[in-house]
Amino acid sequence: MKARRQIAFDIQDIKTRVIDIAERHQSHGYKFSTSEQGSISNVANNGGCYDRRGDALLLEEADLVGIDKPKQQLIDWVLDGDSRLKVISVVGMGGLGKTTLIKKVYDDLEVKRQFQTHAWITVSQSFNIEEIFTGLIQQLFDEIRRCLPHRFETMDNNNLKAVLKEFLQESRYVLVLDDIWSVEAWDAIKIALPNRNCGSRVLRTTRIGNVASTSYRESHGYIYGMKALSPK
């Protein structure tokens, strides 16, 4: 069963990479033949690729279709009562609604009430670890109206990591890491996420199956595989 699960993740990786290559070709003006268009779905329209994650954060839940069951499943995992730090990954190809789903879970009133500290950051393919730490620290300090540390603007990666870890030691936190593309990015971030056995949670979206499976093995967490909606 473990081997089959890993094969499934690897196949999803291949599919995702093929689609991403197609999108990049299209954005650079490459014209696909009729047969290629029939073989590769979800290729970007003429005019370049458009990142819709920002739009996803603004959608009203009443306008969404097919979100109720996956949202409830994720909420149940977030609030499962386990005191260990857990990582919950939503994995699937671009455009399936991973960011939209995670946002609705993150904004749920019951989820908000269960955690003292909240932050959301987009990682992206070309991530900058110092920018990620800086963004998280600014959100966390703003949430409780605490002044940023002295010389915050000039801190290097190690100092930022120490500040973030020290801050998170003090509370039960829920963090969203949206659009993680590599295990290396996750490894760089996770070192600053303490496990105080108080039920903290990290929610992540990724197109890459191997990223999801790695944290699944490490954190006793969960993986939700996004699928396209049925025709119905």
Rank of each mutant, 00 (worst) to 15 (best):
R4K: 12
R4Y: 09
F9R: 07
I11E: 12
I11T: 10
D13N: 15
D13L: 07
V18G: 07
D20G: 09
D20N: 13
H25M: 15
Q26H: 09
H28M: 15
H28I: 13
Y30N: 08
S33A: 11
S35M: 11
S41A: 14
N42P: 00
V43C: 14
V43Y: 07
N46A: 11
G47F: 03
G47Q: 06
G48Y: 09
Y50G: 06
D51W: 08
E60P: 05
E61Y: 04
L64D: 00
V65Q: 09
L74T: 03
L74C: 06
L74K: 02
V78G: 01
V78S: 01
D80L: 00
L85Y: 01
K86V: 00
K86F: 03
V87M: 15
I88M: 03
I88A: 00
V90N: 06
V90G: 06
G92C: 03
G92W: 03
M93K: 05
G94D: 08
G95V: 10
G95C: 11
G97S: 08
T99E: 07
I102L: 12
D108C: 02
L109Y: 04
L109M: 06
E110G: 07
V111H: 00
Q114L: 07
F115A: 06
H118R: 10
A119R: 03
I121N: 05
V123K: 04
I129M: 11
I132P: 03
G135R: 10
I137G: 05
Q138V: 12
Q139C: 01
F141H: 12
E143M: 15
R145F: 10
R145T: 11
R146T: 08
R146M: 14
C147G: 04
P149C: 11
F152P: 04
F152L: 08
M155D: 05
M155C: 11
M155I: 03
M155E: 07
N157V: 12
N159Q: 15
V163S: 05
L164S: 05
L168M: 10
Q169F: 13
Y173P: 02
V174L: 15
I180Y: 02
W181V: 07
S182W: 13
A185I: 05
D187G: 04
D187L: 15
A192C: 03
N195L: 06
S200F: 07
V202H: 01
V202P: 02
R204T: 14
R207V: 02
I208G: 01
S215C: 12
E218A: 15
S219K: 06
G221S: 05
Y224D: 07
M226S: 12
K227E: 14
P231E: 12
K232W: 06
K232C: 09
